[in-house]
Design a protein around this nucleic acid. Structure first.
Lengths: 169, 169
DNA sequence: GCGATGTGGACCAAATTGGTCTTCTTTTCA
DNA sequence: TGAAAAGAAGACCAATTTGGTCCACATCGC
């Protein structure tokens, strides 16, 4: 499957929504607009904030906004924000463990010496060719954003009365 | 960290060793030569066999060999053999579940419609630019293959007397 | 100062992964 | 023809990772 994390997937969904809205919104509002559970939105935003992809404003009327124009945020940036450096194998991040041993058990005996570096660089380059603006624009969204938003609200309501009430307050 | 499976990592190590040796060898011998545990070699080979990357010969003097020249086996092939089609998100393989619902919970409401397809195609293209021959050639292996093999044998012996004896028989 | 909002981290249940084992089939060779 | 060598298929369990949630605290605006 060669998957990215679900959390990373959420991050892209949230960032696309932010790129389309282009306003500072509270995490609660973003959760409502996208249908992603609030605690998950909070967790993702924390990671995006640390990586400098979004900016935050605390206090009343606070919220999150994009730190850069969508055109200059790439898929590689989003993935790296959630999952760290792009390293397909343990061989490449040679950060020695506490006991001085290398991450790859075989150490310098590993016959792959540096071959994975090439692969990693090419994958990262590929991921750098698609931007948030591309993701947000889309060739032809099946539904207009308004419909999407309305449908998401319905979904949020169905998630449970107590939570929906709390979120809608 | 955007990793491939450890099993996939092993598969590449084994295939590189097979490309360098270019002989039909028993799984036991490959395990000895690479330092990868025998049961793991067997498991990886099963996947590689199903994908047609290696051929097998049963019975005495049997073993595994490459099904194609290293030049025509790409990193993408190896990853797909172990992990299935390259699909960074659950959105892309729209195979409906048993209950008729799509893999992505949001269904056609998902605002990503088709955007991930582009990313997936570009990543796969990148992975297709590096072949098994490239991985096996290497720019400059730190040690000659003979040293690697001898060292692997020592490692195998250290794994335990009973297993080492059984493997050396 | 109070309420709204973000921040940081702990926490646990569920899913995935990795590694091993067992049993069976196929092939070679004496 | 039968025994040994080797692969095939899958069940199984432990360990790790992931995901989702919650809590206590820090800021900010009114």
């Amino acid at each position: 499957m060669f998957r990215i994390n679900k959390l990373t997937d959420y991050a892209v969904v949230l960032l696309v929504d932010m790129a389309r809205s282009d306003k500072v919104r509270a995490a609660q509002q973003i959760a409502l607009d996208t249908g992603v559970p609030l605690p998950t939105v909070a967790k993702v935003m924390k990671a995006l904030l640390r990586s400098g992809l979004v900016v935050s404003h605390r206090g009343a009327c606070g919220g999150y906004g994009l730190a850069h124009p969508p055109r200059s945020i790439t898929v590689a940036d989003m993935i790296q924000a959630l999952e760290g450096p792009i390293a397909l194998t343990a061989c490449v991040d040679k950060a020695p463990h506490a006991d001085g041993e290398e991450a790859c058990g075989l150490g310098s005996l590993c016959p792959m010496n540096g071959q994975w570096d090439t692969v990693n660089r090419r994958v990262e380059a590929a991921l750098r060719t698609v931007t948030l603006a591309d993701m947000a624009a889309g060739p032809l969204p099946a539904f207009a954003p308004e419909f999407t938003r309305a449908r998401a609200a319905v979904l949020a309501a169905e998630m449970g009365a107590e939570r929906a009430g709390e979120m809608a307050s």
